[in-house]
Design a protein around this nucleic acid. Structure first.
Lengths: 361, 361
DNA sequence: TTGTATGCGTTATCAG
DNA sequence: CTGATAACGCATACAA
C-alpha cells in the first residue's frame, strides 16, 4: 500500500504538499497540483484512516447495537437497522454493527477505543442495560425505543400511549364497541420488547375507559398459530366483535383474513380490521389494511440526526427525547357500524388533538 | 479520554510497562502489574484502536457489502447479513455495513484506507461489479453468491445446478410427471439476482431432460399475487399437475396453500408441494413443506472462515470457490403418485450421488 | 524486572 | 507558494 511519502517522492514534492493538495487547505500551484494528483492516481493512493484519526479527525463511523437473542432473523427489526444505515450513509457515516450477546461490553469496547463516533441502540427492552450504561460510553448515544429507565442516552420513539388511544378512539368513533385483539407472538411479549407490551396494555386501558369490550386471541406461539380456532371462537361470541385489532405479523393476519373469507365474512362489511404498531409497507397482505403503523424511517432519521448534531455540533443530547405522534393510514378495512348517534367519544381522548399534528418527515 | 501516558503516570511506571501489562508479552512483577491494572480501572483506560493499528496490528473489522436497491428491506437477504455478522463476531471481528448505491466506491474507500481487513459481498447479481473489481480492493474478498464472471474474489454458494436437478429428480422419483412452478416475484427475476434466475432455468432444463411437463404460474408482481387465479388455472389443467414446485416466498406459498385447502384439496394427498431455494426456518408456513433450502448459516460460516484464513493466515483465496450441495428436508408434503414402476430416473442425474453427501456443518 | 527511544502515516505549525 | 518537522497514542527493539 502506497503512503503519502511514496506519492511525494513520485511527484517530486514534499509530503506536506501532498497533504495540502488533498485537503485544499492552502493554495497550490496548478502545475504542482496536477503532478501530485497524477502520482496519487498512479499509485492508487488512499490516506490511511487510522493515521488521519490520530490527527484528531473523526471516524465517520456510528455503532449500531442490535443484540441477536435466541432467534436470529427477526425480520421485523430489520427495517430499523437498514434505515439507520441508510440515514447514516446520507450523513456521511458508515455503520458498525454490534450483535453480540454482551452488548454493553461491545459498545464500551468500540466507543472507548474511539472506533466509532456515536451509538444507536435498537430493539430496546424494558430496563435495557445498554441504555442504563450509556454514561460509560464516552460517546453520544441514541436509543430507538421505549426504555423504562433512561440513562445518559437520547430516546426516539413512537408515542405508543397515543397510538393505543388513537386505535381505540378510532374504532369507537366508527361505532365499534366490541373488538377482538389479535395478539403478537408470545416471544415478543415474553422478551418484554418495550412497545409490544406497552401498546397492548394501553389499548386495553383505553378500551376500558371508553367502555369497550375487548376479547383477546389465544396465545400465538408463532410457529403454529391456529387461525381457524381464533376465527371460530370469534364468530361464536355474543355479541360478536365488529372489529379486529391486529398486533401480529402480516403472515398471521393473512391467515386470519383468509379464514374469515373462507367462512364467508367480508372485510370490512362483515368485520373491520385495524392493525396497530405494525409496518406492512413491504409486506404482502391479502387485502389492504387500515393501519397505525410503526415509522421506522422517520424514527431512524430523527435518531441519526440527533446523533450527528451531537457528534458534529457538540450538542449535549443525553437528555433529549422525542416521541412521534402516530397517525391512521386509511386503507378501507374499517367500516362505521351501529346507529349514527354512537359516534363521539364517551371519554375525551387526551391525544385526539395532537394526533392530528403532521409528523415531521 | 485517558491515554497510556496517563495510566503510566498514575501507576508510577513507564508507558512501556503499561503496554506490556496489557499485552502480556513480557514478565511483569506482581506488584507492578496490580498497580497498573488499578490505574487502568481507575481511569477507564482503553487503548486507542487507531494507534494500535498504526503499529501494524489488524483492525478486526470486516466490511459487508449489501447494496440497498430500490426496495429497502428485502427481508429475504437479511438472514445472510445477520449470519455473517454472527460468524464474524465468533471469529473476533466486527462488521462494517456498506449499503451505498455505488458499492464499489464504498468498498474501495474502506479497504484502501485500511479501515477493514476483508470484504464479504452479499446479494450477488449476474456480472456483479463488486466481484469484477475485487482486485482493486487490496484486501481479501469473498462473495456469497453466484456471479457469472469471477474477479479476484472467492465465491461460496449453494450448487444451484444440483439443487435444480435434485428437485426435479426427487419429484420424478416420487412419480410426478406434470408439475406446476410457482414463480418467485418478478423483482427478483428482473434484477437478475443470480440464483433465482439460474435455479428456475435449470429446473426447466432438468424437467425437459426427464420428460416432465412443467407449467409456470403467471407473473408474480409481489404486491398483489392472485393465488385464486393460480389455483383455478391449476385445477383446470389436463392433465392436472400432481405437484407444485415453489420458488416464491412463504407468504405467497401460504396464500396458494390456503386457496387449495379452500377448494377441498389436501396436501399432499391431492397435490404435493416442494419448495426449492427458499428458507422457511423462521417463516410461518401454514403447514410444513418439504424443502430444498438455502443454507445461509452454512454459507456465511464458510465465507467468514475463508476470509479469516486469508486475513490471519495470509492464504490466497482469490481463486477459491466452494459450492455446497443441497439436500432435501422432508416435511411430508410430497407424496408418491402413479404406478409403482414409474420410479427410477429416465435420465441419470449428474448429481444423484453427490447430493447425498453430508454437507459440512 | 523496568525504562528510553523510535517509528507507524498523517496533519498542522513553523520556517523559508 | 513550498518544505521540514513535531505530534497524535501506541508497541516494540534496545538499553539498563
Amino acid at each position: 500500500m502506497a503512503g503519502i511519502k511514496d506519492v511525494a517522492r513520485a511527484a517530486g514534492v514534499s509530503v506536506s504538499t501532498v497533504s495540502y493538495v488533498l485537503s485544499g487547505k492552502r493554495a497550490i500551484s496548478e502545475k504542482t497540483a496536477s503532478k501530485v494528483m497524477e502520482a496519487i492516481r498512479e499509485l492508487k493512493y488512499t490516506p490511511d484512516a487510522s493515521a488521519q484519526k490520530m490527527r484528531g479527525r473523526r471516524n465517520q463511523i456510528l455503532a449500531v447495537s442490535e443484540p441477536i437473542r435466541g432467534d436470529i432473523n427477526e425480520a421485523k427489526y430489520n427495517a430499523y437497522f437498514l434505515h439507520t444505515a441508510w440515514q447514516a450513509k446520507n450523513a456521511g457515516y458508515d455503520v458498525l454493527l454490534l450483535t453480540g450477546e454482551d452488548a454493553v461490553d461491545d459498545i464500551q469496547r468500540v466507543t472507548r477505543s474511539n472506533m466509532v463516533d456515536g451509538v444507536v441502540l435498537l430493539d430496546i427492552v424494558e430496563d435495557d442495560d445498554r441504555v442504563m450504561q450509556a454514561d460509560s460510553y464516552g460517546k453520544p448515544c441514541v436509543a430507538i425505543g421505549y426504555p423504562t429507565h433512561r440513562g445518559d442516552c437520547a430516546c426516539v420513539d413512537v408515542d405508543f400511549d397515543a397510538a393505543a388511544a388513537l386505535a381505540m378512539d378510532y374504532l369507537y368513533e366508527h361505532g365499534h364497541r366490541t373488538v377482538a385483539l389479535l395478539r403478537d407472538n408470545e416471544r415478543d411479549y415474553a422478551r418484554r420488547s418495550g412497545y409490544v407490551v406497552t401498546l397492548r396494555q394501553r389499548m386495553l386501558d383505553r378500551a376500558a375507559e371508553l367502555g369497550m369490550r375487548v376479547v383477546e386471541s389465544g396465545r400465538n406461539e408463532a410457529d403454529r398459530f391456529d387461525a381457524a380456532a381464533f376465527v371460530r371462537d370469534l364468530m361464536a361470541m355474543d355479541p360478536r366483535p365488529t372489529a379486529i385489532v391486529n398486533q401480529a405479523s402480516a403472515t398471521v393476519l393473512n391467515m386470519v383474513m383468509q379464514e374469515l373469507v373462507e367462512r364467508g365474512m367480508d372485510i370490512p362489511s362483515d368485520i373491520s380490521v385495524l392493525s396497530v404498531g405494525t409496518f406492512f409497507e413491504n409486506d404482502l397482505v391479502v387485502r389492504p389494511v387500515t393501519e397505525i403503523p410503526l415509522m421506522p424511517r422517520l424514527l431512524c432519521s430523527k435518531a441519526v440526526g440527533l446523533l450527528v448534531s451531537a457528534v458534529e455540533g457538540g450538542a449535549d443530547i443525553a437528555d433529549a427525547s422525542e416521541f412521534v405522534l402516530p397517525q391512521v393510514q386509511e386503507h378501507g378495512s374499517v367500516l362505521t357500524v351501529g346507529p349514527a348517534d354512537s359516534v363521539g367519544l364517551a371519554v375525551p381522548s387526551p391525544y385526539s388533538k395532537t394526533s392530528l399534528v403532521e409528523s415531521v418527515a
